[in-house]
Amino acid sequence: MMEISHVNVLIERKQILTDISMEIPKGSFTCIIGKNGSGKSTLLKAINQYLAYSGTIEVDQQDLKILNKDARARLMCYLPQQRSIPNMNVRQLISHGRYPHLGFSKTLQDEDTYIIMEAAKLAGVESLMERNLQSLSGGERQRAYIAMMIAQDTSYILLDEPTTFLDVEFQLDIMELLKQLNERGKTIVMVAHDLPQAFSYASNIILIDHGRLIIQATPEEMIATDEVYACFGVHVRTSKNPNDLYRYTFER
């Protein structure tokens, strides 16, 4: 369980998040939605202790502010939306996932190598292990990063818009992979910009607007309210067309 209590974030004297309190159930597939600039990514960064905040964030009854960095990195991992593409191959990237599990010498043991190979298989990148990240397509690269997160072996996986800039087939590919990880017991917390996609995969939806929590509900509960319309100006509906990409669609 992730418990967020009265979290405020101030960046350059501007209030970005205001008194956010919520509980994210363990094992849930949680999508955080909201308009651009609403504070979704800021919330994820605060959870990942990348931004200073007031209030408390506890994961499995452990206050993240006082938890040491290695212990936190063994508890949850995070994939930012924007990142540079380092000049390294997929194997090297995935092996970085084991970093918080290594001792002071930071040397990989046989067990780590096994976990890296299993993570690559699960993410479907075992045939790309020697390829340089800079030579991969956007979808392949995203899979490689998710393989790194799998190798990090944490209970909580945080992702900031993991399907942005990807072709539709790769988007589905990534979402199915996350669903698979969720079914294996991982708690997924992701910022999503595609409403039908978020509603179709999530078991828990959090709507944020102007840095405030508006509502937290299941997709079914959420479409029964007007909050999505009030925020985005569109209604999310259950799709009636079996050929639609997602179980949900939106309309004006």
């Binding site: 990942n48 991992c77 990142r83």
Partner: peptide
């Protein structure tokens, strides 16, 4: 070399 946010996430 992975970037600050990812490095922070890795502890």
């Amino acid at each position: 070399s992975l970037g600050d946010e990812m490095a922070n996430s890795l502890g």
